[in-house]
Design a protein around this nucleic acid. Structure first.
Length: 464
RNA sequence: GUCUCCAUCGUCUAGCCCGGUCCAGGACACCGGCCUUUCACGCCGGCGACAGGGGUUCGAAUCCCCUUGGAGACGCCA
């Protein structure tokens, strides 16, 4: 898998201004897979130059989400806020060499310039007022990169192909803010140079940023990395995926009871494919992942598909592995300190019907509680005074045939002239408090004869 | 508005680079059937797409152009 040539190095640089969302997670996954596939390394960096919006708690939650997904990194987390000296040094270098200059325009000036450009049918931009003024630093001043309006800047994108921008579309972007902090464009480039990043794989909302960043690489005299812009993940309305589409944070899915492997599989198949294959283990993903197979059109996130994948992975899990991760979900459903043996025993029967851990907990609940908690309508439908004689008969038949109640129950069905479909739901209601469950004989087996009989007696006692 | 990207079933996609094997394949969802003591699982079947228009060619989902539509960017956010 290792290729000759320089070692491949990718990175994932979220800004800690919110939780890790699905789009970010997929970007991280692609970078991670690409690095792992090529035996390269993967760098994790927090872009927290905006001190107003960056929060430590977000950094922590992003790190936790990465760990939960299993996306481990070889370097980092680096924090841009700890590298301000380095950025300042780079800015000074650009200033000294005349590739950058001080600009004294106020935010209000800029606002006016943008309005003018827009009115003229142009892209809103800075008009270069301070470009040739040779100004020095001053309170409120910013440093801008001097960009030639001549020519074009392009790059060979690894997923989109050749992309070219006319330089006169670009304005002189700010690289150092008036509070002396570096801007995003400057900081990413300096970091990617310093950290030796060879491949920048990111969302295609960064395409228009790329020529500007290439210009910074050039001004700094550095070699540009290779770029791969991955199409975005859209919401059902085909707009940028956002909170109004429901859960978008990775952590939301963890709380809903999704398995990391299902999320990873889902994310990998959004934009990337390998023939008709839908299910991929992590190893397969690493082996097969290739930027050439990444599509160029955006994709809508389909929640049903994720549910289906999650169900797939749950069904194929080892029940013993499910027990520990199910505990928090059971606790939230009101089941504390469940009997693990019973849980393990019922799991194979409920795994086909629990698509998430949350649903699994719901299905497991009747067997773990001391007494069943009847769901709405169940008592009224199956445990009324009219059912009492039947339930009494059921009790007697089961009690008399504890070793194997099935044949006796079938006989009862014949004797009473009641189809199993009319007889057994009563038993189910008494044993589980539900109108659906695994097969009734399996339910009795999970519960054990002692509890089975006790629950029927309890139901009998409660009917009045 | 300007620039850039994108365009196959409702959705994710295969096929497109290297035109014929595609009256377009798979998956999810949906519908129907089977299995069945319930709900599921499972199995079988069905519905369903090359955005439109021009070229090029014996032949185009595949190549070219235009139109339309969608998205993104345009910030002292990242």
């Amino acid at each position: 898998m290792n290729e000759t040539g320089p070692k491949i190095k990718t990175r994932f640089p979220p800004s800690p201004t919110g939780a890790l969302h699905l789009g970010g997670a997929r970007t991280a996954l692609f970078n991670w897979l690409f690095a792992r596939h090529h035996g390269g390394s993967f760098v994790f960096r927090l872009e927290d130059t905006d001190r107003q919006r960056s929060k430590d708690e977000y950094a922590g939650s992003i790190i936790a989400a990465m760990r939960w997904l299993g996306l481990d990194y070889d370097e980092g987390p680096y924090y841009q806020s700890q590298r301000f000296d380095r950025y300042r040094q780079a800015v000074d270098c650009l200033l000294d060499s005349g590739r950058a200059y001080w600009c004294h325009c106020s935010p209000q000036d800029l606002e006016r310039q943008r309005a003018q450009a827009h009115a003229a049918g142009q892209k809103p931009r800075y008009n270069g007022a301070c470009r040739e003024r040779n100004l020095g630093p001053a309170p409120g001043a910013v440093a801008r990169l001097k960009t030639s309006p001549e020519g074009t800047t392009g790059f060979a994108d690894l997923v989109k192909g050749d992309i070219t921008f006319a330089n006169n579309e670009l304005d002189d972007l700010i690289i150092l803010r008036s509070d002396n902090s570096p801007t995003y464009h400057l900081a990413v480039v300096v970091d990617d140079i310093d950290m030796g990043i060879t491949h920048v794989i990111r969302g295609d909302d960064h395409i228009s940023n790329t020529p500007r960043q290439i210009l910074i690489y050039q001004a700094l005299g550095a070699k540009t990395p290779l770029f791969a812009h991955v199409p975005m993940i859209l919401g059902p309305d085909k707009g940028k995926l956002s909170k109004r589409h429901g859960a978008t944070a990775v952590i939301d899915y963890e709380e809903e009871g999704y398995l990391p492997q299902a999320i990873l599989n889902m994310l990998a198949r959004l934009g990337w494919s390998h023939g008709d294959q839908e299910i991929f283990s992590l190893d397969e993903l690493i082996n097969l992942f290739d930027l050439k197979a990444v599509g160029s059109s955006p994709s809508v996130f389909d929640h049903d598909r994720l549910l289906n994948l999650n169900h797939h992975y749950i069904q194929r899990s080892d029940p013993a592995d499910l027990v520990p991760i199910l505990l928090p979900f059971l606790a939230r459903a009101g089941v504390n300190n469940p009997d693990r043996a019973i849980l393990l025993k019922c799991l194979p029967h409920i795994m086909p019907r629990g698509r998430t851990l949350k649903e699994l907990a719901h299905w497991a609940e009747p067997y773990l509680l001391d007494q069943p908690r009847p769901e709405a309508g169940v008592k009224e439908k199956f445990l009324t005074p009219a059912h009492k004689p039947l339930l009494q008969q059921l009790l007697e038949v089961i009690e008399a045939n504890q070793a194997d109640p099935e044949p006796a129950l079938k006989r009862l069905s014949q004797e009473t002239g009641l189809k199993p479909g009319n007889l057994l739901p009563i038993l189910r209601a008494a044993l589980t408090g539900r109108n659906s469950s695994p097969g009734i004989y399996q339910v009795m087996d999970i519960l054990g004869m002692e509890k089975t009989l006790a629950r029927i007696r309890l139901a009998l006692a409660e009917i009045d």
